[in-house]
Simulated scan of single mutants.
Amino acid sequence: MKPYQQIKIVECGEQLGEIPLELFAVESPHPYEKLGAPYGEISPYYLRQSVIKRLIAAQNYLQLLRRNWRIQIFDAYRPVAVQQFMVDYSFATEIKQRGLTIAELSPNQLREIWEAVYQIWAVPSLDLQTPPPHSTGAAVDITLVDNTGEIVNMGSPIDELSERSHPDYYANNSHPQAEYYHSHRQLLRDVMIQAGFQRNPKEWWHFSYGDQMWAWLNNQADSTNCFTACYGRLM
């Protein structure tokens, strides 16, 4: 169990709503659907209604700072079945990238790879007290698109299983483009924080509002806070 999963969930019953994609940039086809993730009739471009309002507010704030820049939505609502699919896919991909097969993995290698996978991916839990953040409709994975329509280089791709995914990896880093990467990660953070979101401490692209991680991060920021989550697992 991760620390944020100890936060109490008091489900508010707010419904999912369709993200107005015309206001944002969107990766098409959807990256996980393209891999065969089992969304069924559920669109990945849905979020809780209040989360959508805050995402629009973040887009509007971005426009004040960078004219004609847009937030690009990579992923939003994710049923637990999709979470399981992507965990399995990530595990298999990591084995392949290491030039190995699952049959030849030692117990230590197996443990190491699963630890790497779960640094990025939440456990696809069916326990109502420990839902994956995306399965609550409260979390969204995003990046930025500049005024020429190009995706801004953040120094690592979304979902990469490495320390480069950590939001502050490029802070005080010797990489020649470290300042560029870090400044744009900070820009993304600033517009989302302004709209009430919190950022996953280990993923520069993951933001949420109203889930357990969001409540836990607010409580960590101020010891007088006593936030609970208002969004639990939907399906």
Rank of each mutant, 00 (worst) to 15 (best):
E150I: 14
H206Q: 11
W204A: 09
Q119P: 00
H166P: 02
S162V: 13
G196H: 06
E115W: 05
A58P: 01
G210E: 05
H175F: 14
V10T: 09
P157S: 12
L188F: 04
G149N: 05
A116W: 05
D127K: 08
G40A: 03
W69P: 01
Y180C: 04
D141M: 12
R233C: 05
D168E: 12
S165I: 05
I73P: 01
L65Q: 08
R70N: 13
A171I: 11
L126F: 13
Q63H: 11
S174P: 14
Y231I: 00
Q198N: 08
L47G: 02
E163D: 11
I9A: 00
V80Q: 06
Q5G: 09
S183T: 15
P157F: 07
D75I: 01
T143V: 10
E27V: 12
W114I: 15
H184W: 12
D190P: 02
R111L: 09
Y61W: 11
G155N: 10
Y4E: 15
M86E: 07
I52V: 04
A81C: 12
Y170W: 12
A37P: 04
P167G: 03
L161N: 07
Q194S: 10
D141H: 08
R66V: 01
R66E: 14
T228A: 09
W121V: 04
S165W: 00
Y181C: 09
P201Q: 05
Y46F: 13
C12Q: 06
R164H: 14
R78F: 05
L100D: 06
A122W: 03
V140M: 07
Y32F: 13
N60F: 04
P107G: 11
